[in-house]
Amino acid sequence: MASTSPRARMRALSSGRALFGRLPLTGKIGVLILLFWAITVVSVQFWPLVDPLMMAGRRLQPPSGAHWLGTDALGRDVFSRTLHGAAYTIPVAVMVVVFAVVIGSALGAIAGYFGGWFDAVIMRTADVTLSFPPILLAMTVAAALGPGLPNAGLAMIIVWWPIYARLMRAQVLEVRTREHVEAAIAGGAGRGRVLVVHILPLCWTPTLINATMDFGQVALLAASLSFIGLGAVPPSPEWGSMISEGASKFYSWWIAFGPGMAILSVVLATSFLGDGLRDIFDRRGPQ
C-alpha cells in the first residue's frame, strides 16, 4: 500500500539512491549501462584511445589485441569510434527527448485543461503527425532541411512531440476531474494556478516512464537517419553511419558489430529502466 502512495512516489523521486534500491534487477542493469554511456559522453576525449578519425592500422582488420573491435575500410579503430560515437548519438537523443517532452507536454496540458478550439487544433495536428510512420516523416523533414545531426534532431522532435502531447492531455483530463481540483477552484485559485499547482504535479509519471523508454527509440531513429545519410555526416563516428559503412562490407562483420551493440545496449537499458520505473510509479502495474 504505502509503496504506491503518491507521497512514497514523491519521496522516491527525491532520493535517487532509494529509487535505485527499489528498481528491479533489470532496471538496475539499465541504470548502470546508461551511467556508463553518460560518463563516456562527457569524458571520452580524455580516454587513452586512438584518434577515431585517424588511420590507426591496416584496413578491414578483424578484432585483435591492438584493435579490440578491428578496423574499418579506412583503417580506423572501430572500438575507439564506437565509444566516441556515443558523444554524437546520445546528446542528440537527450535533446530530442527533452524538447519533445517539454513542447508536447505543454501543448497537451493546455489542450486538455482549456479544451475548445485550441484543443481541437493541437490534437488534430498531433493525429496527422502520428499517422505517418515516424521514420518516413523524419526522413522527409530531414531531407527538406538538409543532412546533419542538428537537422535530424529537429526532424525527430517534430515526429515525437505528439506522443507526449497526447499522454499529457489524457492525464490532465483525468486529474482535472478530481475533487481536490474542484476544491482548489472553490478556494479561489485561478486557472493557471490550478493547472500548475494542482494538476500538473500529478500528471508527469506516465510521461517520465514513456520518455525513458523512448530515449532508446530516439537513439535508434537518430542512428537510422544517419544510416541512410540524413543524420551525422562522415567522417564523424556516429553509430548509424558506422553501421551504414559496415553494411557495405558485409564480410567484415566487426565494423557494424561495435556500434550495433552500442545501440542495442542503449535501447535495452532504457526499456529496462522504463519498465522498472513503471513498476514503482504506476499504480496499475503489478502489485
Binding site: S5, P6, R7, M10, R178, E179, H180, E182, A183, A184, A186, G187, G188, H198, P201, L202
Partner: peptide, 17 residues
C-alpha cells in the same frame, strides 16, 4: 471566500503531494 465545499471522498479531495 463566502462559499465553500466539502466533498465525499476525503482522499481524492486532498492534493496527494
Amino acid at each position: 471566500q463566502d462559499l465553500q465545499i466539502v466533498f465525499q471522498d476525503p482522499m481524492s479531495s486532498l492534493h496527494p503531494g
